[in-house]
């Protein structure tokens, strides 16, 4: 009877093994469990700091207007159709993320994507069956007065920062049949010589973006730039060597002597 009650040796071994295993497990926990998991019980709380440390790419429209950099543009935008309503097209909706723009590069922010402005506008303004007809104006490119001869992109008639139909700055808009309106000669003041007057009439189609007389628009200032630089840039835009926001489709239609006249005109303005 006594021998029957004695615990078999294999059972003793099993119990000892379990005890050793358990001991190593709980001791190991102390060393291998990350500090962050001891608090939460499951996940590593340290990952919170890692996730929160990601860089902010979209800085928000206010950061463009609150600084001294783009105040006038911000004002135009906030009073226009894109910024005045509750449904705002933000700066970065079209220009892409600019969170790193002020520190990293001093270049002017381009529009996002491949620079095709017409397609960028149509992203929201193309008429589609699934889109509710209320809200933003929606067009079918074939029905909208586009493309006129001379009018290649939306921004020639609509200011992207304050859309709505502007009284056409470009003479070619008012008379779509001819790319260059002969009447434009009389509207320009410095039409003294033949070459300059031709340049002036051509240049009027640049004013919608670059501002009257090549100054004060949202596109870079042209007035007073060196003749060679202007000419080279236009040629490069035409050949596609230089990628611009909207200059490539515009420059593709300009002839050599017209480039010469334009460069002459803008370099002559002081």
């Amino acid at each position: 009877m006594k021998g029957k009650n004695k615990t078999p040796h294999y059972a003793v071994r099993l119990v000892v093994l379990i005890l050793i295993g358990g001991f190593t497990f709980f001791v190991g926990l102390r060393f291998f469990v990350p500090e962050g998991s001891k608090l939460t019980g499951s996940y590593d709380a340290e990952s919170l700091l890692y996730i929160a440390s990601a860089p902010v790419e979209y800085a928000g429209s206010k950061s463009c207007g609150n600084t001294n950099c783009h105040e006038s543009l911000f004002k135009t935008w906030s009073e226009g159709a894109h910024g005045a309503k509750e449904e705002q097209s933000k700066c970065e909706t079209c220009h892409g993320p600019q969170g790193k723009h002020p520190e990293k590069d001093s270049k002017l922010p381009k529009v996002r994507g491949d620079g095709n402005v017409v397609e960028l506008c149509l992203t929201c303004h193309r008429k589609m069956k699934a889109r509710s007809t209320t809200g933003q104006p929606q067009i079918t490119p074939q029905e909208h007065p586009y493309p006129h001869e001379g009018v290649l992109i939306c921004t020639q008639c609509h200011n992207p920062h304050s859309p709505g139909f502007n009284k056409p700055v470009s003479s070619s808009v008012s008379s779509p049949d001819t790319a260059i309106d002969p009447k434009a000669k009389s509207t320009t003041t410095d039409g003294s010589s033949g070459g300059e007057s031709k340049g002036a009439s051509l240049a009027s189609s640049c004013f919608s973006c670059h501002g009257p007389k090549g100054r004060g628009g949202f596109a870079p200032v042209l007035a007073g730039q060196p003749y060679e630089a202007l000419k080279n840039k236009l040629i490069k835009f035409r050949s596609g060597e230089l990628k611009g926001t909207m200059m490539n489709p515009v420059a593709s239609k300009i002839k050599d002597e017209e480039i010469d006249a334009l460069a002459h005109y803008f370099s002559g303005i002081k």
């Binding site: 996730i51 929160a52 902010v56 979209y58 097209s89 909706t93 993320p97």
Partner: peptide, 23 residues
């Protein structure tokens, strides 16, 4: 999606909400 946790912890909205042109 993280609801842009790196943005909301800094008091900003997620990028999608910030950018939506139709609210």
């Amino acid at each position: 999606c993280t609801w842009c946790w790196h943005r909301i912890t800094k008091g900003q909205e997620p990028a999608c909400v910030d950018i939506c042109p139709k609210k």
